[in-house]
Design a protein around this nucleic acid. Structure first.
Lengths: 189, 189
DNA sequence: CATTTTTAGTGTCGAGTCGAAACTAAAACT
DNA sequence: AGTTTTAGTTTCGACTCGACACTAAAAATG
């Protein structure tokens, strides 16, 4: 039991490292993670602070990473009308293009090549573990609007109680910093 | 398919980061990995070069990490009699004690708390993915003697064709740099 | 409405990571 | 004997990272 769990944990760390060290290292792992984050996050969440929460780091560090991507021309800075403190970032066309070389695709392809039955269980286990660990470490959970407690289907559209706005179709599977897991939120047993 | 595999890959990276950023950060992730490696590796494999291969980095970087652990008193340097180029490292008592605070235990415990059926499948999937990715990236595979093609059970003991030596009981589940997967070694489909 | 307090973002410091490159010394090969 | 390979180290520059100090803007409080 204990040994098998320890081994699985070590393998997971090793796998993550292998996946990130692969091939094209035009960017560092932190920079790839930031680029993926800003590509997937919804309007509310494309800020340095939200990224720092997602990435389990400090705002200072996140600011540096974002700055480096901006100086490479992969992110574009934009003022947040309505909150003078806040800054929003979007991918430039170069940023979108860079994602095509994401080294994480090597791992993604290996996962896609798993037997159908294994793949489903694997995804479920990953979601469970990420939720468990985030709760245990008091780290914020991130998820997509479709799984979020703030989300509600109303006639003729979908509505987010948090943003107090109707969402567009393309935002349903975007990452949101205000994500709250639906249902009993799961006791950490 | 594609989206689910991408999500699973991103969750895995995120999970690895959460697990390594947790709690006690007396050591960096690279230092924890090195400490775990030297604790688990067998006699042949406790060298900076073997660790650099395991950790998918350069010998220069590995040398730095090992040096920092040595200066903290967690590893002890030893000359390799029989090969004047090589240096061996062992955990000191402080090193063994430090492993008790390994932040990876948080993840290991979450894995141990999974339903029995899920846990077995998860471990199997992790082994498959690590092997697949290592082969694809021409990274060396590491494994324990019990799974190794060099390993053979003879009367009254166990024998390693690679080390040309009889192994002790405690070395059966040690990491070995000379590991070769048994059986058909698996085509990367 | 004036004054805290909180929040968003940035810059700096020091230790560490990391790949690349140059270097030494000891095998191993020819 | 001479060449090549291997093990290990050092140095360099860019980046990571947490800690800390700082500014400015919002929010909360009285």
């Amino acid at each position: 039991m204990k040994d098998a769990s320890d081994l699985a944990a070590e393998l997971l760390i090793h796998l993550a490292r292998l996946a990130q060290s692969s091939g094209n290292h035009r960017l560092t792992p932190a920079q790839w993670t930031a680029l993926r984050y800003f590509a997937r996050a919804n309007r509310l969440s494309r800020t340095p602070s939200a990224f720092s929460a997602f990435h389990a780091t400090t705002r200072g560090t996140a600011s540096q990473t974002v700055k480096s991507l901006e100086s490479m021309g992969l992110l574009r800075r934009r003022r947040n009308e309505g909150d003078g403190r806040s800054t929003l970032f979007d991918l430039t066309e170069e940023g979108e293009a860079a994602l095509a070389d994401d080294p994480l695709q090597a791992l993604s392809q290996r996962i896609a090549a798993l037997p159908e039955a294994d793949r489903g269980g694997f995804l479920g286990t990953m979601k469970t573990l990420v939720g468990d660990l985030a709760r245990q470490q008091a780290a914020p959970e991130f998820g997509t609007c479709g799984d979020c407690a703030h989300f509600e289907t109303v006639q003729g559209g979908v509505y987010c109680h948090c943003a107090a706005a109707t969402l567009m179709a393309g935002e349903l599977d975007a990452l949101c910093i205000e994500f709250r897991p639906r249902s009993g939120a799961g006791a950490v047993n």
